[in-house]
Design a binder for these strands. Structure first.
Length: 847
DNA sequence: GATGTGACTTGAGGGAACCGAA
DNA sequence: TTCGGTTCCCTCAAGTCACATC
């Protein structure tokens, strides 16, 4: 088959880029001359292919990859296997349910297994309800809110028309992009993307969406579910909320909970939780039960106090000296402040890196006076140790403060949070996520960031734009200052913004994840992912077809999508070279990041991935792929240098445009959410049974969560105290075992005595000893489970996936179904963030 | 169509707060 | 009550993605 390819075509590269040697070489190869012809035909056919900007070797010198900070997947695998062994020897029967064929929580196997299952499994519409992106979402867990809002729904229907394009000033029309024109009790699933108007028209063409007489979209599935719901209601004679409330009231109180309640004075709240809320603040704003009457705007009224600035620089005491070339030097205030930034970091590895030192020194010199610059010419001659010692002492002093002194500080802090940490949004008090302006300091990029060590300058009010509603109390700028600008743009969610000087990025003051604005977006995100579930089989079939397409570009698209779907890779936007660390995602993978093995470890068509992803976290994985993918990869790598792009014909914009055609609202990152949540749901279904103890259930939950974290490559550094705490646990287990052995011996004796000549006393002793043995056995098992869980969690971060990728309704439903207190899986912050899900989800929810 | 901009989400690290054992 | 290990939660860097502009 002939493959369309215009690699040799003149317009291949972006105009500003120089052609690399390898590019020229390729242009001259016979294959490419052929491709050039094909390319011209492409152009004629209107399918012009464009090369992506390519990395030249000078810009991306091939350097050895950073040692895995924590582990490669191989290590993860090894850990899992060990754990598996542990689990077996400890007799905790959880292993049979591990996700992979090899009974390890191994990424490859896990994903392969998952795909095999989901590929074979037909996702029918009756499994989950169809959710229309732009129309009312009506599925079981939302019904309660729907019902409640129906009271006001009809009267408000008219309000939900598209807002006309707003006359935006400084910003482009976010309202256009995200109209959120939903009806009362509904939520629009059109996330932050923009083309809602366009999409709505596209969406209305979808065949699986039925239009009812009044123009309201309703799917057949929704109708079916509504019918079921009515039947359910008829049977119970009560509405779902009542049932739900009753159910929750009935829920047995876990031991831990009741213990906690007693301890905290029967209100079930920890000290922290108690401290977090003011009197009268207990009633959470149940925005999910309300309609959105903002016509796509983010808010109607917004009032806040503006951001809180860091304290002014406090000069060093006279007895703390900076030395240059062995001589004490009294620095100017500005230079001294920057010197303290460096001095504070002296113990950090950063300061040993040459780029950090160079960047710091360059920026520091800019803050110096002419005389200082004249005098201080070499960083190596600078001695910051005295300053460093001073700050260490200060830190020790702070630690050694009395309880009362600490309390005073805390109260001062609380006062500031009270004043600046909340805003009034549409009449509701909402928590602000980050109300403090970032203090000055030295920029710490992650990985080998070329700008590490540069000076992050102090932000002045004159650089800050305030966003609030017209007619509200405008925040007052600090004395002697004024704001850069005060605007009233309700199409954006931020309260204040500024541009940081190191990378020129915008920084924003935004709301806390528990707020309506963030919660609604989160909900929408999971609804899009659920919608993908209905389409994923078609999409997979389509990208498989792409593998054999005659166009190179289409083939690359097919393979890239396969990776994004199968391996949960990030999209991989192009980045500014030399401005950021050299990290990649799917579309920006280079030839050097993969190695093809015709056969490895008894499996054919193996692809070895080794690259630095987001935050310079290493991604290492060996994956068996389908033969056609393997062949295509070979083709993509043909005649390329290691530093050339693997997918040189596509980029994330192209990929997302294509995905959006398959399903409105679909982008590359939705696959991560979809696959993460699907994996959690499948694993929980597989790993939990009703007869498990609470601890066993929690281990199952964490294992399911872990499978997702591995899939998403969420690694963490092993805690510093890991070995020690494991040793402590092991000691405890040994101690408990010993106690158990003794108790068992005593029981045997007691039984013997009782058998000899049974009296009331001997009978009671047997009973007592039996209960002791039982209690000790339970305690031992609990400790063993704890140990297993901790060991398995050594280098895996569960938090990120839990917060960002796992539909909370899966977890909430699981808790309800298996009587697990929600506090066991979500801490206070997480419960606040997922309040909407906790309130609306019933036990039968399935992602 | 390429590039730039802006608004947002995702992510790991680290200090503060908390909690249980001694 | 103290100490030390663990968890929470804040911070800010680093992504994604859509729209604007050239």
């Amino acid at each position: 088959m002939k493959l369309e390819d215009n690699e040799g075509h003149g317009g291949a590269k972006t105009s500003s880029r120089k052609r690399t040697a390898s590019e020229s070489k390729r242009d001259e190869s016979p294959t490419d001359r052929k491709r050039s012809k094909d390319g011209e035909r492409d152009k004629k056919e209107g399918t012009e292919l464009k090369h992506k900007a390519k990395h030249s070797s000078s810009k991306h010198p091939r350097k050895p990859l950073q040692e895995p900070k924590i582990t490669s997947s191989g290590v993860l695998k090894a850990v899992s296997e060990n754990d598996h062994a542990d689990v077996k020897t400890k007799g905790v029967a959880m292993d049979a349910s591990l996700p992979s064929g090899k009974n390890t929580i191994d990424l490859n196997n896990n994903i392969s297994a998952k795909h095999t299952e989901s590929d074979e499994r037909k996702v029918t519409k009756t499994e989950i309800q169809e959710v229309d992106l732009f129309a009312p979402i009506e599925h079981s867990d939302m019904e309660r809110s729907d019902k409640k809002s129906k009271k006001t729904g009809d009267s408000q229907k008219d309000k939900h028309k598209h807002k006309s394009k707003s006359s935006k000033k400084g910003h482009h029309g976010t309202d256009e992009r995200n109209p959120e024109h939903r009806k009362v009790g509904e939520i629009s699933v059109n996330s932050s993307d923009g083309n809602s108007k366009k999409r709505k028209s596209k969406d209305s063409l979808e065949t699986d969406v039925l239009l009812t007489g009044d123009g309201k979209k309703e799917t057949a599935v929704k109708k079916e579910n509504a019918k079921k719901e009515r039947e359910k209601k008829d049977r119970s004679g009560k509405d779902t909320k009542t049932t739900d409330e009753k159910k929750r009231k009935k829920k047995p109180e876990g031991k831990e909970e009741s213990k906690k309640k007693r301890k905290d004075g029967d209100d079930g709240k920890s000290k922290k939780e108690k401290g977090g809320k003011k009197e009268g603040e207990d009633s959470t704003w149940k925005w999910w039960e309300e309609g959105n009457s903002n016509n796509g705007n983010k808010w109607t009224t917004l009032e806040h106090k503006g951001p809180l600035f860091p304290p002014e620089y406090e000069p060093l005491p006279n007895n703390v000296t900076f030395f240059y070339n062995g001589n004490p030097v009294k620095l100017s205030l500005a230079a001294e402040e920057v010197a303290t930034f460096y001095a504070k970091m002296l113990d950090h590895e950063y300061t040993t890196k040459s780029s950090f030192q160079e960047n710091f020194f360059t920026d520091w010199r800019e803050e110096m006076t002419v005389e200082e610059r004249e005098q201080i010419k070499k960083l190596s001659k600078c001695d910051f140790t005295h300053i460093n010692k001073y700050f260490l002492e200060k830190s020790e002093e702070k630690k050694a403060m009395t309880k009362e002194q600490k309390q005073v500080l805390k109260e001062e802090n609380n006062k500031l949070t009270e004043e600046y940490g909340f805003c009034e949004l549409d009449g509701h008090r909402e928590k602000i996520g980050n109300f403090r302006v970032e203090p000055p300091g030295l920029f710490r990029g992650r990985g080998e960031h070329p700008k590490m060590g540069k000076l992050k300058k102090r932000i002045q009010p004159e650089e800050i734009t305030i966003n609030c509603s017209k007619g509200s109390n405008i925040p007052v700028a600090p004395k002697g200052h004024k704001w850069r600008k005060v605007q009233h743009d309700n199409t954006v969610t931020w309260l204040a913004s500024w541009v940081e000087n190191v990378q020129g990025n915008f920084k924003y003051v935004m709301l806390n994840p528990s707020s309506k604005l963030k919660g609604e977006k989160d909900w929408q995100k999971y609804e899009v992912a659920r919608k993908l579930k209905l389409k994923v089989e078609t999409i997979r079939r389509l990208y498989r077809d792409d593998w054999k397409n005659r166009e190179m570009k289409t083939r690359q698209r097919g393979v890239a999508l396969y990776f994004i779907d199968k391996l949960a890779l990030r999209a991989g936007n192009e980045k500014e070279e030399s401005e950021t660390a050299d990290t990649v995602g799917c579309c920006s993978l280079r030839v050097e990041h993969i190695t093809l093995h015709q056969e490895k470890g008894g499996q054919e068509f193996m692809v070895e991935f080794d690259f630095l992803g987001k935050d310079s976290i290493r991604y290492y994985n060996e994956v068996p792929v389908e033969g056609r993918v393997f062949k295509n990869l070979k083709l993509f790598m043909e005649n390329k240098e290691p530093e050339d792009d693997l997918f040189d014909r596509i980029n994330t914009t192209y990929l997302n445009k294509h995905l959006n055609q398959s399903m409105p609202g679909l982008t590359a990152k939705v696959f991560r959410t979809f696959n993460a949540s699907t994996t959690l749901q499948e694993q929980l279904n597989k790993l939990t049974t009703a007869d498990m103890s609470l601890e066993e259930k929690l281990l199952s939950y964490n294992r399911a969560n872990r499978a997702v974290a591995i899939l998403c490559n969420h690694q963490r550094a092993a805690p510093k105290t890991f070995e020690k705490s494991m040793q402590n646990l092991q000691d405890k287990v040994a101690q408990k075992q010993q106690q158990l052995d003794v108790a068992k011996k005593e029981l045997k004796e007691a039984k013997k005595e009782h058998k000899k000549g049974g009296t009331e006393k001997t009978r009671k002793l047997v009973e007592k000893t039996e209960s002791v043995v039982k209690r000790l056995e339970e305690q031992l098992k609990k400790l063993q489970l704890q140990m297993t869980d901790r060991e398995e969690n050594k280098v895996i971060a569960l938090g990120t996936s839990k917060l960002n990728y796992l539909d909370p309704r899966i977890s909430v439903a699981w808790c309800r179904k298996f009587n697990v207190p929600i506090e066991k899986i979500y801490n206070k912050t997480q419960r606040d963030k997922f309040a909407w899900a906790i309130d609306m989800t019933e036990e039968d929810f399935q992602f």
